[in-house]
Simulated scan of single mutants.
Amino acid sequence: MKNLLSMLSILLLTVIFVAGCGNNSMKSSGENDTKSTEVSQGTSDEKEDANDTITVSHLYGEAKVPKDPKKVILLSHVSWEGSLVSVGVKPFAVMAYDNEFPPHLVEELQGVTPLPYADEINPEEIVKLNPDLLIISDRYKPLYDQLSETIPTVVVEVGGDWKEDHLKVTEAVGKLEEGKKVIKDLETEAAEIGKNIKEKVGEEKFMAVAINKKDIRVYGLINHATNSLLFEDLQLTPAEGLPNDFGENISIEGLAKYNPDHIIDVTYFNSGEFYDTVTQGEVWNNLTAVKNKNVHTLSTTWGFWDPIERQKGLKEIQAILLGE
């Protein structure tokens, strides 16, 4: 009897031991499965994060920016917001003179928050707007130093080639290929318009001017969006003696050394004491273009730094010179 009880006790202990091992094995397997799932989910989240951002190289380094930003703030004294609009991105906030947007973008920027033009920007005002992308010109480096750690920021250098600026701005919002197409379409349109103008005017010479409050800006051959519009895109013949750069500011008397057949007038304010002094003065009225009534005053006068204004400028020049 004792032997039977001993055998039963041993058998019972064996069953309990095996069952315990099985539970521990199941528990260990379950923990491993859970950890595996957690690791898998973590990897998935990381991939998802990577897919939601792009890396953009810019003037001061690199920035990880949202692939599809919803609140873009753009701070620049030239109208890069037109580049955003041209690729279907409406900015959240941009700078505006006296609360007014550039004339050629008033309709396109309806509902956009205007920010005051200033050489120095209070970073706290930008933080309050809670942007998910900040695009700024190189004059705002202090702002970059203060905000780039917390707000994705792309810095664009204001240069002589509007295309480089345009492409960097469109790249920042994940629309680089669309930005390239905008340039290609503009070049095709400008080549056709320029060809038609040349057929009409031949080698007659052109010069662009803007009459400021105290002096006259004569635009040059390169390093400015206005110059590239006239002499690269449209292939017009430049007047002799134009500055071999973005331009120069001169006095009324300085006009005498230029004598173009056509003047493209891109004056922003066509009024005022100095403006009247210039346009009613002897030097101005002795120019060939003035005598032949070939002063072409444009309403698009923001500098042609963005594709929206460039296209509107092309259409206006086409209408003035070709009557189309």
Rank of each mutant, 00 (worst) to 15 (best):
residue 45 D to H: 08
residue 45 D to P: 03
residue 49 D to Y: 03
residue 49 D to T: 05
residue 50 A to M: 03
residue 51 N to L: 03
residue 52 D to W: 00
residue 52 D to K: 04
residue 52 D to Y: 00
residue 53 T to P: 00
residue 53 T to C: 01
residue 55 T to G: 01
residue 56 V to P: 01
residue 63 A to S: 15
residue 63 A to F: 00
residue 63 A to W: 01
residue 63 A to L: 04
residue 65 V to E: 00
residue 67 K to C: 01
residue 69 P to G: 12
residue 74 L to D: 14
residue 74 L to C: 04
residue 79 S to G: 12
residue 79 S to I: 07
residue 79 S to L: 07
residue 80 W to P: 01
residue 81 E to T: 09
residue 82 G to W: 14
residue 82 G to R: 06
residue 86 S to A: 13
residue 86 S to M: 02
residue 87 V to Q: 12
residue 90 K to M: 06
residue 91 P to M: 05
residue 92 F to Y: 15
residue 92 F to G: 12
residue 98 D to T: 04
residue 98 D to L: 09
residue 99 N to P: 11
residue 99 N to D: 15
residue 101 F to R: 13
residue 102 P to S: 12
residue 103 P to H: 14
residue 104 H to N: 14
residue 105 L to Q: 04
residue 106 V to F: 04
residue 106 V to T: 11
residue 106 V to W: 06
residue 106 V to P: 01
residue 110 Q to L: 08
residue 110 Q to T: 11
residue 111 G to Y: 15
residue 112 V to M: 09
residue 112 V to G: 12
residue 113 T to S: 03
residue 114 P to H: 10
residue 114 P to N: 09
residue 114 P to Y: 14
residue 115 L to K: 12
residue 119 D to F: 09
residue 119 D to M: 13
residue 120 E to I: 02
residue 121 I to D: 09
residue 127 V to G: 04
residue 127 V to L: 11
residue 128 K to E: 15
residue 128 K to A: 15
residue 128 K to V: 13
residue 128 K to G: 07
residue 130 N to A: 11
residue 132 D to T: 07
residue 132 D to P: 02
residue 133 L to V: 03
residue 133 L to H: 03
residue 134 L to E: 07
residue 136 I to N: 00
residue 137 S to Y: 10
residue 138 D to M: 06
residue 138 D to R: 02
residue 139 R to C: 09
residue 140 Y to S: 08
residue 141 K to D: 08
residue 141 K to V: 03
residue 142 P to S: 13
residue 142 P to N: 11
residue 143 L to N: 14
residue 143 L to Q: 14
residue 144 Y to E: 14
residue 146 Q to V: 04
residue 148 S to W: 04
